[in-house]
Simulated scan of single mutants.
Amino acid sequence: MANKCKFLAEPMTVAVIGCPFSGGQPRPGVDQGPIHLVNSGLPDQLQELGWNVIFDGHHQFEDITVQDDPPIGIVKRPRLVSSVAEAISKTVSGHAKAGQLPLTIGGDHSLALGTISGTLSKYPDACVIWIDAHADLNTVETTHSGNLHGMPVSFLLNLPGNGDDPLFPWLNGPFLPPNRLCYIGLRDVDAGEKKILKDYAVKAFSMHAVDKYGISKVIEMALDHVCPNRDLPIHLSFDVDALDPTVAPSTGTPVRGGLTFREGHYICEAVWETGLLVGLDIMEVNPSLEGALAVQQTVAVGCSLARSALGE
């Protein structure tokens, strides 16, 4: 662990937050991702890097049944996602305010409602680098599926397309300004999301940009945009489907043509080298998909991404 983070207390402590949650999307199994990552030794691996590691077990969430959680308009399981995200936000916030680095392992990417809002409660000037095949930027007005794992960024940006009656009343700021968000790895973006990206001038590097400039230049441009003076806290949110399915096959919404193993890890390494990382998400490992060898491969990649982001 060569660098130190300027925002973290000594001794350098990472709080591993296991979130076995799948309510933001319809496919079963993604709730088992955190359990597999921990069982494969992730906390011990981080300790070997020199971190003081806190892991108090996986979070258990309130059991809200489908009968108690009918859709609101098209949006599915809104009360369940809200309850879980609020709990995660408080947990992340508590660790951040104690000078620790929260590492949230999911679970589906709707959890970023909680992780990033928790980071912003401690670091209201934080910026976000979002690594994903998808923008997860749909609003209530633009979503076709109603699945909240495709919508968290729109709520974090407090976009008007989410209506006047808030789905998440606890989410009351600070919100993320569009100029402090940058995507890397996009290649499956809905029409409504493309319009939002354009209208709000959100910086996004698709796989075309990665091919054109190379990953080193892309991460430099991303950092130049969200953190030009290299002085703001950074939250890195990494969906493993940003990687090509040949690298991370066991994920719910794979899209061909993604980041290579090295490109994904280079992003993590480059963010760590800034000394500004204050929050990390590793999301959407689904061990129920693609068979035992694919699961083992994807879990191993999830662990190695976390290690790379934390100094390996």
Rank of each mutant, 00 (worst) to 15 (best):
A2W: 12
C5W: 06
A9M: 12
E10P: 14
V14A: 09
A15H: 08
C19I: 00
P20I: 02
F21W: 01
G24F: 02
P26N: 09
D31Y: 02
D31C: 09
D31T: 03
I35H: 08
I35E: 10
H36K: 13
P43Q: 00
Q47L: 03
E48S: 13
L49M: 11
G50M: 00
V53L: 10
I54G: 02
G57A: 07
H58E: 12
Q60H: 14
E62Q: 12
D63E: 14
D63Q: 15
T65Q: 11
T65P: 03
Q67F: 10
P71T: 09
I72P: 02
I72S: 06
K76N: 11
E86Q: 15
A87Q: 15
S89G: 12
A96Q: 14
L101Q: 04
T104R: 06
G107F: 01
S110C: 12
L111F: 04
A112E: 14
A112V: 11
L113H: 06
G114W: 03
T119P: 02
K122A: 14
K122M: 12
A126I: 10
A126W: 00
C127Q: 02
I129G: 08
I131G: 03
L137I: 12
H144K: 15
G146W: 04
G150Q: 10
F155W: 04
L156H: 04
L157D: 03
N158R: 00
L159A: 05
N162E: 05
N162F: 07
L171F: 09
G173A: 05
P174W: 09
F175L: 01
P177Q: 09
N179D: 15
R180Q: 13
Y183L: 11
G185M: 04
D188L: 13
D190W: 02
K198N: 11
D199R: 04
A201T: 14
K203S: 11
A204E: 11
A204F: 04
A209T: 13
K212H: 15
Y213W: 15
I215R: 10
I215T: 01
V218T: 01
I219F: 02
E220Y: 08
L223I: 13
L223C: 12
H225F: 13
V226T: 07
N229I: 02
N229A: 12
N229H: 13
N229P: 01
N229L: 13
D231G: 07
D231Y: 02
L232T: 04
P233R: 09
P233G: 10
S237H: 08
F238L: 14
D239W: 05
P245R: 07
T246W: 00
A248T: 10
G252K: 03
T253L: 10
V255W: 03
G258R: 00
L259V: 11
L259H: 05
T260D: 09
E263L: 02
G264P: 05
H265S: 13
E269M: 06
E269C: 11
A270I: 07
G275D: 01
L276A: 07
L277Q: 07
V278I: 11
G279P: 01
V285P: 03
S288N: 08
L289W: 06
G291Y: 01
A292N: 06
L293R: 06
A294Q: 00
V295M: 08
V299T: 05
A300V: 03
G302L: 00
A309N: 11
A309R: 00
E312Y: 07
E312K: 14
